[in-house]
Design a protein around this nucleic acid. Structure first.
Lengths: 226, 226, 226, 226
DNA sequence: CATGAATGAGGCTTCATTCAT
DNA sequence: GATGAATGAAGCCTCATTCAT
């Protein structure tokens, strides 16, 4: 467990926090409390005051860990991307066929998230909900260029790069590998959100996971697989 | 011009404003000032106070037109979708081939925006920048279900529906027409944002508009056109 | 009265306030309340919250007038300097002798302050106490060069300049007119403070105003008058 | 060296610190770090947190030495006064003429400060800057009467007393010896500050140290020396 | 209808301080 | 004795909104 733990968290850029939340109980409570509260009330309404009340701590204590709620959300998003990287790695171990590896990865990136019992301070299902609804706010803000320079989006870039390299294994002349991957990752988030809140912007079919089916088909069509 | 003008604005749901901004000079100044200011400082830092200072008016006056900055952004987004609808309509008039109409529409949805001189209170180029960066905040918020019931997203839905119907003309059995369209629209926004701020998440090629090329190719691959 | 009123306040640099406190009742209450409260608890402990409580208003309302307590103190100090200018002007009207005018001015600058009934929102006696104890904080701060560029110290400079010019009438070759004047003004504040709190740093003599006597004698000695 | 060291520091009132900073390396680092940081950012913005960061220690550790930043500034000011006493003593040794001793002392009190290599934990030049800008805050505060009772200003009083006694040697009937001395000491600080930040309040002359020249001339005029 | 004035509420942030090791 | 962790309290500031003219 320790090994995997460090795999996930060790990828997180140190500048996003003031004190590593994984080094103390309070830090872990901040993470789990944030996931609980932010999935419920949303990023806009989320404040350190409400969080501190919900975990029976104080604003000042939370400030010891994170400069502001934006960096806290960024931390969770980094964790999610790092966790996705790890999930993709697991799903492609020992598979020779590039096509099969790509398919598995696309499934990993777009399928519904289940609870992963390894990390008791992270509820992956609720974190996924947060990522779907809020993660674009991590970069859709005025700080984006500064945060980018700090390396806050490296885990995301690595994830995209890893999948893009599989695409290039399949078609070394393909022109838009990164565009295709990031469109799928972001697209999967949007479609799951639409399914929940704006169904006329998406398509759902009884008894199947349309989102994953759609994106697997899309990438295969685009890369002329089968 | 008046006709087209009303075509765009008349689609905007009345509940998003308290007083129609197009019925007065101040109202139009609010729109143009918002586009100017929000494209510069971003939605988060945008306040009615700053806006009123920038257009030499008062918070109270702006408040007569819009309940809050969220609805003001929603108004602009509606305007943008309505304007896109109109643009798509223009681009498909008198074209018989469904395939050609679809291609024209995808281009219209994804190409860079140029200044349209028809509406002196709207700078389309800056509005496009705002839409790229901020528009998802219109629905990625806790009000989404309420706003949806009010019909705030109808113009977006109609736009998606219109394109989806062309897709169904081409392949009446296609399973994911709305998903495909909304993925392209949102995807184009993301890719333009990435090109500007996070280039490793996208692909750009010298001298061509990769974003449009990519999405045109993607939809053709997916629908087996050519 | 109106005339004199504008004489004093009209000298105050507009950038020190956000809204002119003399244009409303609340503004005047802010001034009188600040003098009352700050003379009692000191600048360090003074907050907009305490002020707003003491005048039955709110912090936000005070913020409409002054950006921060530093600018509020600066305003009062400007007012004091402007009032001193006016006092010096009165005391030198129709006096031909430069020496007599200088003596009168030094007395005006160093003598104890009595209540001037002209300005009901300013208690000059308490303002003088504030100036003695706190006014050097107006420039002994990191903002000094910025504030100086804004012209916050012009009334002080004009006051010093006016007295220096009388000195030069008496001795056109005197090398340190400004130094002498500012040393006397600041020195009088210090000596009154020491008399109250650190008597061993000053000299008091029964039944006379030592401070004024000392500085009048000092300037006469320095300029070889009599 | 040890002898002189204790001469300076031994004069410092024990109640100003909780633990004598000269008894440990950390204590000396606190002093040198404070001089460095406070001369840079000013007393208002100076906090134990920033200090502890700058010397790689912790707030709690600093708190073991000083109750608050006010006492820390008071300590440095006491050290400065004590150092001035010592400097005056050196400058008057073996000089018979009262007039010459007085002149030397006034020069010592008003001249620019050079780096004294004896105390490696004190940068006298930067300490002088702090004293010029911040030292009046040591007594211009609500604690002044309490601190005075504790004896915090004794070294200052002794310094003034020592110089006053030379004045009385020259003119045993002079009425304002303490006032004259404290006016010169404080005045020299003000004039150096004005020269730097508000030059219109002082007079500077090419190639000479106007401040010292002025105050030497002033005291001679006042005491009718020469 | 537009605006100037005022404000209640609450977010954000830091400070000064204590406690446990 | 030194330090890492935690926190209560308070300051500072702005927002969104209402009221009166």
């Amino acid at each position: 467990m320790i090994v995997i733990h460090s795999n996930i968290a060790s990828k997180i850029n140190e500048k996003v926090y003031k004190k590593d939340p994984l080094t103390s109980d309070l830090g872990k409570k901040i993470l789990s409390g944030t996931i609980e509260l932010m999935s419920e009330i949303g990023f806009e309404d989320f404040t350190f005051k409400k969080l501190s009340d919900s975990i029976a701590s104080t604003e000042a204590s939370i400030y010891r860990y994170f400069e502001n709620k934006h960096n806290l959300l960024t931390y969770l998003t980094m964790w999610y991307w790092s966790w996705l990287q790890h999930k993709c790695a697991i799903k492609t171990i020992n598979i020779e066929s590039s096509e099969k590896r790509l398919e598995n990865v696309i499934i990993a990136l777009t399928e519904p998230v289940l609870l992963d019992e390894q990390f008791d301070y992270i509820n992956e299902v609720k974190l996924h909900l947060i990522v779907i609804t809020e993660s674009s706010k991590v970069y859709h803000c005025k700080k984006v260029d500064r945060d980018n320079k700090e390396g806050f989006f490296l885990t995301y870039k690595e994830l995209v790069e890893a999948v893009a390299s599989i695409i290039l294994e399949i078609d070394k002349d393909y022109q838009y590998p990164h565009m295709l991957v990031s469109t799928i990752i972001e697209g999967a988030h949007h479609q799951r959100f639409f399914a929940e809140h704006l169904p006329r912007l998406t398509d759902t079919h009884e008894g199947v996971d349309s989102v994953t089916l759609f994106f697997v088909q899309l990438i295969k069509s685009e890369l002329k697989i089968d």
